[in-house]
Nucleic acid binder design. Sequence first.
DNA 1: CTAATAGTGTCTATTAGACAGTATGTT
DNA 2: AACATACTGTCTAATAGACACTATTAG
Lengths: 273, 273
Amino acid sequence: MEKIYQTEEEFLKDYDASLYEKLSITADDIIFSIATKEQKNYRKLDQKVFSVLLIKRNDFPFKGCWSLPGGFVGIKETIDEAAKRILKQKTNLENIYMEQLYTYSNVDRDPRMRVISTSYIALIDRSKLKDKLSQDAAWFQIQYTETKDKVNVTLKNENEQIKFVVEKKLKEKTTNQYEYVIKENGGLAFDHAMLIVSALQRLKNKIEYTDIIFNIMPEYFTLSELQNVYELILNKPLLKPAFRRVISKKVEKTDKMLTGEGHRPSVLYRYKG
Amino acid sequence: MEKIYQTEEEFLKDYDASLYEKLSITADDIIFSIATKEQKNYRKLDQKVFSVLLIKRNDFPFKGCWSLPGGFVGIKETIDEAAKRILKQKTNLENIYMEQLYTYSNVDRDPRMRVISTSYIALIDRSKLKDKLSQDAAWFQIQYTETKDKVNVTLKNENEQIKFVVEKKLKEKTTNQYEYVIKENGGLAFDHAMLIVSALQRLKNKIEYTDIIFNIMPEYFTLSELQNVYELILNKPLLKPAFRRVISKKVEKTDKMLTGEGHRPSVLYRYKG
DNA sequence: CTAATAGTGTCTATTAGACAGTATGTT
DNA sequence: AACATACTGTCTAATAGACACTATTAG
């Protein structure tokens, strides 16, 4: 016969937490940053490069594959804390912009067992990155093309190239929400090709109506550099006068200049928080 | 000595899933809808009412308190499926607009044990609600006022009134993200006051740049009704000509009219998907 | 006729798109 | 000098804000 509890205290004392089936949860970080690639022509501006951090897996499953940095959430830890801990392990950085993206719960995401994964976007200003990356980690340049129903992504580092294709399926027309289905995963672990595309899309959207971009920029930057980063992430060219008009509300001039570039120097700006 | 695995298959066969500490996950639904309250003055338009569905808890913890509909996610079920199952249990509705909101993982959210909760927003067009609600469920009208750093919410049904206050703490200035901290929870279970405020904010944002509102509207509606719903959710009046100009891209005229209202009849429109 | 809402016209202010021009440091 | 980029001016098109007006029905 079931016992009738009169008070919450009494109930909690007897509560058997093992009654419910449990599962494991991981945090996966999609860490983006901007790097600078020097140009050979002394007159040309240095090119900006948009990249994501990947980890070479040292264990099964997917041993030897590249994957997003991730790990199990401890029993006394929030998912946010786990996401930050993983970021710190790989980059030795703290106080970095992070945002929860989505919680994925497909039953067969992980071949080992039932694992739910919450993904986080992190944006790193590389000038803060003083220490070396953890030795299993590497930056991969992101280049992508997008059509109405497909995203093609190429990730490159000095030695390797990963290409994958994700299909966009309209899930909800009222809100333009898509479901992303991996068509070719290019050897990436788990469903990480999909997580990267989701993160890219989120970043691309947010860049249009928030100031999120300043988290990936160094403290001082020229307006051309800033425009360049916008263009890289949005994947389309912007008109200079319009860009300057709009961005001028968000930034402030400093008395610093960027000189020695083989052409007219430019004023350095700063985010007007 | 640790065994060295040569193939993934071999590794998976031996993998002991119990090695990692596990936890439970619940799905919580924040179900919004619009109802119509008849006016006494025959000339006046019926008033729209914005509401959320709450459940009277029949078990500890928080026995007797109102809470959001929620429940544990099964081991063979995705969180999305759980969220839909819960919605169906309480409203007998399927194919309803649902969207994942956030995953909360504070260690002490639930007094019983470590529980992580993923919240979902659902929008219901009440004309689809043919069956009675489950007997522990009730609609509560939402009214709220908002300042720079606080949200005051009143939930009302025929017999009861729940008032709660949630503080807004700016978490990230670049993206205007807030952390919500419950100041008075008005007797709601768990951290549900906070979940309701988060969902309200998300809805309020999305209504401005998506067509999400049409999920809460019946198939045919007048532009005044639609404007009324916008105003209820945004909590601010809109100018009629501007509203009509903008909304005209999203809706189409039908040949139906709404008559018998004590004044000039109005054309019924439909969402132009 | 009147109350109440439906629906339109228009003026102005603001913002976005496009292009052409001028300015300036480095080699 | 010439190259490459910095930076500005201005015209036009599109959009948003504000207000006043006309139109139509039930009672």
